[in-house]
Amino acid sequence: MGDLAISVQNLNLIYKTTIDKRPTLKARMKSLGRGTKLTRIVHAVNDLSIDIPYGSVLGVVGANGAGKSTLMRVISGILPPTAGRVEVYGKVSTLLALGVGFNPSMSGRENVLLGGLAAGMSRSEIDKHFEEIADFAELGDAIDAPMRTYSSGMYARLGFSVAVTVRPDILIVDEALSTGDARFKEKSLNKMKELRSDARALILVSHALGTIQDMCNEVAWMHKGKLIQRGEPGKVVQAYQEFLEVGKSAVVDEDV
C-alpha cells in the first residue's frame, strides 16, 4: 500500500432543510404565524472513518440515498463536516454528478473554461488541455452550442473529459459514467485504467457493479451514512448484492 491520500476520521454530516419547497420570505412569515419552523434532519454520513492510500482504486457502492455523493462532497471540500475530520494529501479533482455545465445557456467551451477557473486552474493550463478535453469528449461542433441543448450523455462526456484530463492526484468519479453510451463507457474505462497505473488514488462511485468489480481493487459499501463493509471487490459486491435481493439483511440491521 502506498502513502495516505485521504483520511476520513469519524465523519458526520447532517443536512438540515426546511420542509418548504423553496425558502421564501412569504413562507417564513406564515410559519411565524404557526409558531413553528419545520425542518427535516438527514444524517447523511454517520460516524464514518476510512483511509484511502495512493495507488488504490476504491469503489463505493450503496443504495440510493446512502450518502455516497455527500461523502464525496465533504472529501472535496464542498460541504464542511458537521463533526469529524477529513485530511487530504494532494490535489483532488471531482467529477461529482456532472460538475461542468453550471450555466446551461453558455456553450460547452465557456463552461469548461469557467468550471476550470473556478476550480483554481489557470487560464493557460485550461487552454493547454482544451483540445485534449474536446477530443476526448467527441462532441464535435456541439462544444460551441449552449449546454441546454446537450443530452445528459453529452453532459457526462464533457464532465468526464475535464476531470480526467487535468490529471489530479486524487480523482473522484461519481456516477458520471451511467449516462454515456457503450462506446464512451468503454473509452472512459480505458482512460481510468490508464490513470490507475500512475499511482493515483481513484474513487469510483457507481451502481454498475460489474464496472466496480472490474476496475477497483477495493470496495466500500455504504448504507444509511455508515460504512457497512470494506474489502475485496468480489466479496463486498456479493454481500451488497445479497442485501439488495433480501431487501433488508440482518447484517445491516445489527449495525444500524
Partner: peptide, 9 residues
C-alpha cells in the same frame, strides 16, 4: 507529510 487540506467543522 502534512495534509494539503484539512476539512473540519
Amino acid at each position: 507529510a502534512l495534509p494539503t487540506e484539512v476539512f473540519e467543522p
